[in-house]
Each structure stands twice: as structure tokens, then as C-alpha cells.
Design a protein around this nucleic acid. Structure first.
Lengths: 202, 202
DNA sequence: GTCTATATAACGATAGAC
DNA sequence: GTCTATCGTTATATAGAC
């Protein structure tokens, strides 16, 4: 089942990601990670001295894939409306491929905000200044209504991310099976775009 | 510090809620709960046989305060736009008073969806049929654009809840101190209302 | 009901052979 | 590097006195 073409370290990190993301730090078991990586606990500790260090690795990898994707789209050369459309489609597709990552990050940062602070001291994460200026120019020109651009960004992200973070709750409450949820998500892309772009005017 | 005017059981439940909500089931410690309730671990187990049963109590209490509030507003006799305004204001105020409850519920339902399913078998949680019909009538009359009402509901909830669930992440990324975050939330009420109501037209 | 003391199990981590 | 065996600690949970 486990391909030896991957290095032991790589297999450990992959297994650790799957377990940490699925269960969270507190409920994750080193034993399960070792099992998924196809080795014993002793070897796991040989590669990563302790649980915290292994978690750190997984956490930082997740931050590095989660944030830059948003920023790069927000800071492209396109117009705001196109950026928003791009962001929604690209991000929802990313979330479909990594449905549990945002919930994982949110939970772990909430439990220990220092993890993110620490990360940001090493690798600065740029605020999307370009988009913010762009929007403010649009406001000055009387094109958009004067709202805080951060509200705009938080709203898009919220509408994209929330269904994935709260998926079991949404499916249970509204009685959606997996198929229904997936088409809900597919419809949602246009839905969000509409809400956001419409919300900038009038 | 601990008032004896509350029954021992009540003190236990209060302490348990605070610890479970703050740390989640897996990271919560019976010892900390006992300490906060002002008693020892043995007595804690005398009142609640085990950790799971105590958690069940806290979880169900949270569900009972979290969902009905939304439903009651959505099923009132008012018009849709007024309902949305009501919902946003009431709900954000509720969230300000109970900022960690939604994150708690989301995380625990994700970890074990059965907890919610089990609850709903006992106490049925009504889907807001009234609002859904109301919106569909508006669509038939050509007043609103034809979108899935569930998309509408998920969007409002998402925009209200997300900032609280992801608070440490948002504050860290955008560099907001507590004061800035609180005024962000206060502004957000009108913001969300605007996005939602605008989104129903055109 | 409430306590102290303790059983029991699980978990993270290490020692030491190969 | 990889393994088996085991240590030390901490968690939940119980026994039994008061």
C-alpha cells in the first residue's frame, strides 16, 4: 500500500498532515501517524523529536499553501470584478481539493494564535495593498460605495470557506446528501460572485 | 470566588462549558473542569459518570441556544428584508456575547457528526420553510432573482459567523488590535445587511 | 455529597539491539 | 535507519472513608 519511492520523511509528513488535519493536534495520535506512514513510533521520533515539531511542519506547510493563493489573485493586474470572480472560482476549486485545511488552520490558530504570529515573523505575509488601493480609487471616482475593503475581503473568504468548514452541520441541518452538497458548492461559485459584485455598487 | 448559591451540578455544567468551548473535547481536562467548579475530580465523576456524558450535556445546551435563535427570526411574520436585518443584528449581538460557541459547535460536529444527528432525532430542528416559501413567492412575482434560498441563508450565517470563528486569524493577518476588531464587527452589521439585500435583486 | 488515595489505561518519548 | 521493549507521565475513572 505504501510506495517506497517516497522518502521516509516524506511519508511521515504526508501521514502527519492527514492525521493532524483530520483530528486536530490534541486528538491526533503519534501511533496513528506512524501506522499511516508504515513504520513504528520509535522511528517517527527519530525523524521528528516530538509531536510539536512534527505539527509545526504540517502547520507551516498548510499556511504556505492557504494564504499565498489568495494574495496572488488579489494582487494581480486585473480589475476588481475580475479579481473577485477569479478568487471565488480558484479558491472554491482549491477548497474542493483540500476541504479540511481551512477548518484545521482556523481551529489551531484559535487554540494557539502564537503559531501564526511566529510564522509571520519569519515569512511576512503581504496585506493586499494593491486591491485596497484599487477599491479606494473606485470609491473616489464614485464607482463603488464607500466600504472598508477588509469587509469585502472577509466577506468573500467567509462565503467561500464557511460551507467547507461547516459542511457536516450544513448537510445535517438541511438534509443534503453528498451529491446535493457538491452541486450546492458548484452553484455557490456564481452565487458568491453575484453577492460580492452587486454589493460593491449602489 | 465560587458562589455556593448555585447548585453543584450547575457549577459543574458552567465550568464544563467554559473549558469544553475554549479547548474542545480532546484538549479539555476533567481536572481543569473540577478546579473551575471548585471541587475535586471524584465528585465530578459522581455527578457525571464520564467525560463523554458531561460533554453531551454541554454540547446539547449549545445546540439549543445556537439554532433556535436563527429559526425563530427566519420564521417570524415579517418581510424578508426586515428578517435579514433582524437576523444580522440579533445574531451578531448574540455572537458578541458568545464568541466561541459557533467554533466549538462546528469543530465538534465535524469531528463527530453523529452527535448532531443524534440530537436531531430527539428534538427536530425545523427547516425555515416559511422563509423559503416567502422567497420563492417573491421570485415568482419577479421581485427577487431566482436563487436557492439555502444559498441565501448560508451566506448570511457565513458572513456573521466567520469573523468570530476566524477571529485570531483575521486579527493577525490584518494586524487589528482588539479595539479595531470590535469596531470592525460593529460596522459589519450594516455591511452584511447591505450585501444580502442587494444580492436578492437584479 | 464530598473527600483522599489509588487503580488503570493511554500516550509521548527513550534505550538499546541490530 | 529501523526495530522491539519499556520508561515516565498524565488522563480518566474508581474505591472506600467520612
Amino acid at each position: 500500500m505504501i510506495k517506497k519511492q517516497y522518502s521516509t520523511e516524506q511519508r511521515i509528513v504526508d501521514a502527519a498532515r492527514s492525521v493532524f488535519v483530520e483530528r486536530g493536534f490534541a486528538a491526533a495520535r503519534m501511533k496513528e501517524i506512524a501506522g499511516k506512514a508504515g513504520l513504528n513510533q520509535a522511528l517517527l521520533h527519530y525523524y521528528f523529536k516530538n509531536k510539536d515539531l512534527l505539527f509545526e511542519r504540517v502547520f507551516q506547510d498548510a499556511v504556505r499553501t492557504f494564504f499565498p493563493l489568495i494574495i496572488s489573485i488579489l494582487e494581480s493586474d486585473k480589475g476588481i470584478e475580475e479579481k473577485m470572480t477569479d478568487l471565488v472560482h480558484t479558491y472554491v476549486d482549491f477548497l474542493k481539493a483540500n476541504p479540511h485545511v481551512p477548518g484545521f488552520l482556523i481551529h489551531e490558530v484559535t487554540q494557539n494564535p502564537n503559531r501564526l504570529t511566529k510564522f509571520l515573523r519569519t515569512e511576512a505575509l503581504p496585506v493586499p495593498v494593491k486591491l485596497i488601493r484599487q477599491y479606494q480609487d473606485g470609491v473616489a471616482a464614485g464607482k463603488y460605495i464607500p466600504i472598508d475593503p477588509i469587509q469585502l475581503i472577509v466577506s468573500v473568504i467567509a462565503m467561500c470557506v464557511f460551507p467547507f468548514v461547516a459542511r457536516p452541520m450544513i448537510q445535517t441541518v438541511f438534509g443534503l446528501d453528498n451529491g446535493a452538497f457538491e452541486s450546492f458548492i458548484e452553484n455557490r461559485k456564481d452565487q458568491i460572485t453575484h453577492f460580492i459584485i452587486n454589493g460593491m455598487y449602489r
